[in-house]
Design a protein around this nucleic acid. Sequence first.
RNA 1: GGCCCCGUAGUUCAAUGGAUAGAAUAGAAGUUUCCUAAACUUUAGAUGCAAGUUCGAUUCUUGCCGGGGCCA
Length: 594
Amino acid sequence: MLQSEIITAISKAFLALFEHKLDEGEISLQPTRKEFDGKYTFVIFPYLKITKSNPEGSGKLVGDWLLENTAFVSNYNVVKGFLNLEIADQKWVDTLSTISTDENFGVLPANGKKVMVEFSSPNTNKPLHLGHLRNNFLGDSTSRILEANGYEVMKVNLVNDRGIHICKSMLAYRKSGNNETPEEAGVKGDHLVGKYYVKFDQEYKKEIATLVESGSDPEAAKKEAPSILAAQDMLKKWEEGDTETVALWEKLNDWVYDGFDQTYATMGIQFDKMYQESKTYLLGKDLVSEGLDKNVFFKKDDGSIWVDLAEQGMDQKLVQRGDGTAVYITQDMGTCEKKHDDFPFEKSVYVVGNEQDYHFKVLFTIMKKLGRSYADGLYHLSYGMVDLPSGKMKSREGTVVDADDLLQEMFDTAEKHTKELGKIEDMEGEEARNLYNMLGLGALKYFLLKVDPKKRMLFNPQESIEFQGHTGPFIQYSHARISAIVRRAKTLDISEIFDTSNVGDLNQREVDLIYRLTNYVAALKESAEEYSPAVMAQYVYDLSKDYNGFYQEVPIFKEDNKDKLSFRIALSAATARTLKRGMDLLGIDVPERM
RNA sequence: GGCCCCGUAGUUCAAUGGAUAGAAUAGAAGUUUCCUAAACUUUAGAUGCAAGUUCGAUUCUUGCCGGGGCCA
């Protein structure tokens, strides 16, 4: 809004002054640094060839033009090549008025484009862990941001429900499970199945040790151990459709799905569509023959089929084995095609860890070589691993943080903190419980989302449950405080909630805060571009911080501030709404009071 | 061995090639007649090393060092 008006004006200035058409896309404004006067800064250095003048002279020309030809630039100064613009108070007031009255502020109109977001992608042999949480929150938040940017979004979850890993759980269960059910065991279904996965691995390791003791080569022992042979045999049976095997598989998978459903519900995450690998793993073979026909792929002497990606700076990549069986990338090709058939997207985002960077690079290149028009819209939202202070998480070594346990711990901590503060003694059971969950989940989501997705991050359990500083609860608390002001304002007799005749001169804090509010749309767009909730997280945090500082300096209901009461209430209301909107894009609820 | 990602205050994170590298937290010192002190204010503290590109480099290029990942 305001930024784009300034950019348009600068573009006009260049046309008028230098007879040069400056594309609005290439003009960028930045916030003026605190130590200088002004609100927006236009850096003139890059345009000196166009202005054919020195930085100071060029800045003065543009500044003078803006001063004369716009109503909103009230003053300017030039320091070296930086043109600092000051904005008229009335413009800030008008801007706030727009934010306060526009019900759809910060939601861009539908653009008619479809985008699919795939995330979560759990395996059905064990429960969700901390790494999945980063994935889920990123996928969910990205979906919300894309939606707010006008896209029609479909959230999908491709469940890895087949393969050798699930056979391992099945084997161990059949051997020592005594047909126990999750109800009997008193645990969630996914945890029960995970238990047998661990059991299998213990047994398997013992067998290897025995074999090595009796003189086997360690590598060979891994392949010859009875357990692994049995698992492979079971996988074969499953693929052949053996009734008993499939029945066991279905039973265990159903339990796991039940468990996942509970966890997703706790996290507040839903999907529009589920894909199962058991139904998609045979896809892609027709694409292999298509690729052969089009000479995109080639066949080696042993019958195996490859693609040569040397042109793209990669190696040759196997797409089908000599015996005609598919490899991992084959089914991904097929699934990609199927997803597009189901939902003709312009963009498709895969939220998958960065250990698969190369895999997706290859996949997208192949789809492009096969001539798929949508291939340019394929995007791998790659994210780094979550480390613990003790080091890397390894499921086999039991150093994982279980998602359900962690969530519960967050809720418990929120309850403990809240009770210690003794603030909500008037809240009843249900309401208080909701608040604890809102706070615990908010703390966790914010902690995982505020970091640039592509970076590896450190998860410190102690810090994640902090409620002070750069955290979700800090923002939630700010929202609750502002809500209290708005509530109280309603009990006062204020004829006009936003009376512009009563504004007078704006102080610095007020301008800063409106300035911050206007950045919301910019943060929204930037997030969609980068698929980065981190940008939005930073935005809401800065807004909260500014508001708290504002209130400290300009208490709203203090006697000597009465003249601007309605204006400040409008400012508070707009801040609360924008905070809520931003937090919604992160998938974090904000309380009205806490 | 080949390719990819990451190295910023004690710690965890920021910074479209822009001005004196921002926050938070831990440390030091303060603030409550006014919304809800889960707050606010002040203070000290950092770009792995070495070159190059240019008006200007945390950012781009190259080499080295360190951490992680992928491919046989």
